[in-house]
Computed example of a mutant assay.
Amino acid sequence: MNGKESTLPPSALRPVQGAANLAVVALALAGLAWAVRALWHIRLAMAGQPASGPPDQGDGVHRPLNALENSYHLVDSAGSAVTVGCALVFLLWLDRVRDNARALSGAEPRYHYLWLFLGWIVPIANLWIPRGMVADVHRSVFPDRRLPAVVNWWWGLWLAGLAGGVGLIYADSTDEVIARAYTGVWPLLAADLVIVAAAGTAALMVRTLTAAQQERVDEAARTDS
């Protein structure tokens, strides 16, 4: 504890185990979606670029897509939808553990509620604020414990996945990514692998921080009773 009493009784704390389980499942699905995307990158590389050239011919000209390229568009769209859903579920979990950390510690979070959303999209700030919010959840309740290493592993992999415009945020269109797979697939596969690892590490982080907070919630319940 940090020397302050809980501002709310244990019965008023928000349940987090269900949100944590949903987040873990969502992260597993996101990792699977990116693994499937990597498989399609390999398929495209093995098939080789058609004689007609890349899908985007330049000057606004696009040739008809073949069956493999069409299927990649479907994989890409499905993966993007899963990733958005995963982000929403992860934020639901983070919102709940932040509320409980405030109730258990009696201290206001370091970052305002708006940063729960803005922290991921504001340039420069998104390099440290999301990690800071997650770290604050743990440190506000357990100031004497070291931050679990999995938090830093997750954040390092997340940043690596954002780098280079070939990871979580593609700088190019889907057709341009297909052309990359034909001519230089290794950067794409490296980014895919990093993102799958980031999803797995995030799931472990969610379980680790949730278990630690649940330990404190159970302790508060025993003290209250």
Rank of each mutant, 00 (worst) to 15 (best):
A47W: 05
A47S: 15
G48F: 09
Q49R: 15
P50W: 01
A51L: 13
A51C: 03
A51S: 13
S52I: 11
S52L: 13
G53N: 07
G53Q: 07
P54G: 05
P54Q: 06
P55F: 02
P55Y: 01
P55I: 08
P55K: 02
P55M: 05
D56M: 00
D56E: 07
D56C: 02
Q57K: 08
G58I: 02
D59K: 09
D59W: 11
D59P: 00
V61F: 12
V61W: 10
V61I: 14
V61S: 07
V61Q: 14
H62R: 14
H62T: 10
H62P: 00
R63P: 01
R63F: 04
P64K: 11
P64W: 12
P64Y: 13
P64G: 11
L65C: 07
L65K: 04
L65E: 01
A67D: 13
A67C: 06
A67I: 10
L68R: 06
L68Y: 07
L68G: 06
E69D: 09
E69Y: 05
E69W: 00
E69H: 04
N70S: 13
N70W: 09
N70A: 10
N70L: 14
N70Y: 08
N70Q: 15
N70K: 14
S71K: 03
Y72G: 00
H73F: 12
H73S: 06
H73K: 08
L74Y: 09
V75K: 02
V75E: 03
V75S: 01
D76R: 05
S77Q: 11
S77G: 10
A78D: 10
G79Q: 04
G79A: 14
S80N: 09
S80W: 03
S80G: 10
S80K: 08
S80V: 06
A81C: 06
A81T: 11
A81Y: 02
A81N: 02
A81L: 14
V82R: 00
V82G: 03
T83A: 12
T83L: 08
V84D: 04
V84C: 06
V84P: 01
G85M: 12
G85T: 08
G85Y: 05
C86L: 03
A87S: 13
A87N: 05
A87W: 00
L88S: 06
L88F: 10
V89M: 07
F90C: 13
F90G: 02
F90V: 15
F90N: 01
